[in-house]
Design a binder for these strands. Structure first.
Length: 565
RNA sequence: GCAUCUUUAGCUCAGUGGAUAGAGCGUUCGGCUCCGAACCGAAAGGCCGUCAGUUCGAUUCUGAUAAGAUGCACCA
């Protein structure tokens, strides 16, 4: 039963208004003492030509009270509805307990494909905290959409093509050795890459050399390609290790190199459609009409660019997946780039250009300044995750030394803390990396939710139930803290849909915090195991429902929910 | 110069065209003989950047303006 809808119907019959327009006018009061639902009458003043408080009074006089409403009060221009807490609790708790891990699932997205382009680090550069956001936000958006019935295609659009590999080849030939690269992996590739930039300051001809090696790569030169492939494999080995720790997977690793042989056709298409013009030796699509700088397609020396590959990839993906939406999870500073090439797709005559969505997030920096791999101003992802796990181990030793499976739990909690930290604030906010914040496990954090869940699991275990009985007296759950938990659980499915619609995982993470807070208060206020049998059984349904929703919610964020910690 | 984003408590951030603007951290105080204290409770802390406009009503919408961040031709 949809309580809000039923109330709207009752108001509609009492006033002669449309149910739909009433529904949108119903609010949840800021304070439970004011009621569970409220209808402000200000808006009706004009059409009904009456003072709002009078409208409210008339409404109450005429309304037929739905059976789940126990009281209706007028407060100025507001009509406040008080639900029967027991009936509300029954409705929501039965629902969660019956649905279990499917609670909140939807068929909303059935038959629709969403392509999500996320993580996408550059090969031959270490995976650092700057790559975290795209990876975990993308992963969460993927899982949430999947839960809502969408078919998702997660793509790691690796930065595995471009002039930087020309640079790397030059660097390797001048200052590298096979042995050093095999021994130190990305670290060594990084070292010679930095060396290249140092040297190139005084010898600009190195840059030309690098560009020409990249052109060789494009042309299929065997030596260039075999070096490139080697660098690729070295890098992927390290990336896979990080992805395994984060629990992130992709459906495809079609990076930029994948499009190397597909770009010529797209360039031809651009020419055919008379969009490509020459400018200062390069080939561009002019966007003056759109008040944007031109979109560069081909360099003076014939090399392709970022936009060329993105346009090609978009056409390829549309053809392959026939997506409903294609999302790009990158930092906000790439805004213009996406706006430009989305426009190029539009100018090519593809109406689906409006389904390409840049999902931006704020910049990550360190307190020592901007992230810079070249300058060594970075925090490596593995280092961060290991630190978080170690810190968790210390806490476990201190608080729960008897815990079985410590190693595994420390990973789940430590890494969960890092992921949650990144998903907790709105994605647009800039972030200054802070060890202190990353390694804090109290308050609004992942471990707080995991702890709450573990606590609920512990109660259920002690009660000796694996699945609770819904044949209980829900009227015993009419107290304020029980009602608050129920209210939040009932709102979970809406929050999931809102989160998906806005591509904003923080809507889910914040809701989980709210549920955990409400549950901890409930737990504190209400003895469970020591209560009389009927009260105990009723309260156990809340414990079970909370455990279920927290586990589902954390799972959608890509975080594990251990039963003990 | 043009464009995008941000501005709410000491700090980090939620939030809403409407009733008393919320949370965590930090500070001060209180709570484990009791289901897990990685917890709970209380106190203190706010011209919701500034100025106009729309509105019965603006912290929320619009327009200016200020401050900060970022981007703007051959990197990605």
């Amino acid at each position: 039963m949809d309580f809000k809808f039923e109330i709207a119907k009752a108001i509609a019959t009492a006033t002669g208004l449309e149910t739909a327009e009433v529904t949108s006018g119903i609010e949840i009061p800021p304070n439970t003492e004011m009621g569970d639902y409220a209808f402000p009458c200000f808006r009706l003043a004009k059409t009904l030509r009456k003072a709002p408080p009078l409208i409210a009074a008339d409404m109450v006089a005429n309304i037929v009270k739905p059976d789940f409403i126990c009281e209706i009060k007028v407060e100025g221009a507001y009509v406040n509805f008080f639900t029967n807490k027991g009936m509300f609790a029954k409705e929501i708790l039965e629902n969660v307990i019956n649905e279990k891990e499917n609670y909140g699932k939807s068929t909303l997205g059935n038959g629709k494909t969403i392509v999500i382009d996320y993580s996408s680090p550059n090969i031959a550069k270490p995976f650092h905290v700057g790559h975290l956001r795209s990876t975990v936000i993308g992963n969460a958006i993927y899982k949430i959409h999947q839960f809502l019935g969408y078919n998702c295609e997660g793509i790691n659009h690796l930065g595995d093509w471009g002039t930087q590999f020309g640079k790397l080849i030059v660097a390797y030939k001048n200052w590298g050795s096979k042995q050093a690269v095999e021994e130190h992996g990305i670290q060594e590739l990084m070292r010679i890459y930095v060396k290249f930039h140092d040297e190139a300051e005084n010898k600009p001809e190195l840059e030309d050399e690098a560009r020409s090696w990249f052109v060789k790569m494009q042309d299929g030169d065997e030596e260039a390609l075999s070096l490139w492939k080697w660098f690729y494999e070295i890098s992927m080995k390290e990336f896979d290790r990080v992805y395994a720790m984060l629990g992130v997977k992709f459906d495809a690793y079609t990076g930029e190199s994948f499009y190397n042989d597909k770009m010529a056709a797209v360039v031809d298409e651009l020419k055919e459609k008379k969009l490509l013009v020459e400018s200062e030796g390069a080939m561009i699509v002019d966007l003056e009409e759109e008040k944007m700088p031109p979109c560069l397609i081909i360099r003076k020396d014939g090399g392709t660019l970022y936009a060329t590959r993105d346009i090609t990839a978009a056409l390829y993906r549309k053809n392959k997946y026939n997506f409903e939406k294609c999302l790009y999870l990158t930092a906000l500073d790439q805004n213009l780039h996406f706006a430009q090439w989305f426009k190029v797709i539009d100018k090519m005559g593809y109406e689906w250009s409006k389904n390409l969505v840049h999902v931006p997030f704020g910049l990550v920096s360190l307190d020592t300044g901007k992230l810079s791999t070249r300058k060594g101003n970075v925090v490596l992802m593995e280092e961060l995750l290991n630190q978080a796990v170690n810190e968790t181990k210390k806490i476990i030793e201190e608080k729960n030394p008897e815990l079985p499976n410590k190693e595994e739990v420390a990973k789940q909690v430590g890494i969960g803390a890092v992921i949650f930290n990144d998903l907790y604030n709105g994605r647009i906010k800039d972030v200054v990396f802070s060890w202190e914040r990353m390694l804090s496990f109290e308050g609004e954090t992942g471990p707080y939710i995991q702890y709450t869940n573990a606590r609920a699991c512990s109660v259920l275990k002690k009660a000796g139930v694996t699945c609770v009985d819904t044949n209980v007296d829900f009227a015993l759950l009419a107290d304020e803290s029980s009602a608050e938990v129920c209210k939040l659980l009932a709102d979970f499915p809406n929050k999931l849909q809102d989160s998906a619609a806005k591509y904003e995982p923080s809507i889910v993470s914040r809701h989980l915090v709210n549920i955990a807070q409400a549950f901890n208060k409930f737990y504190h206020d209400n003895p469970i195991l020591s209560s009389e049998e009927n009260v105990k059984n009723a309260r156990l349904t809340i414990v079970y429902a909370v455990k279920t929703v927290l586990t589902v919610g954390l799972g959608l964020l890509g975080i594990n929910a251990p039963e003990q910690m």
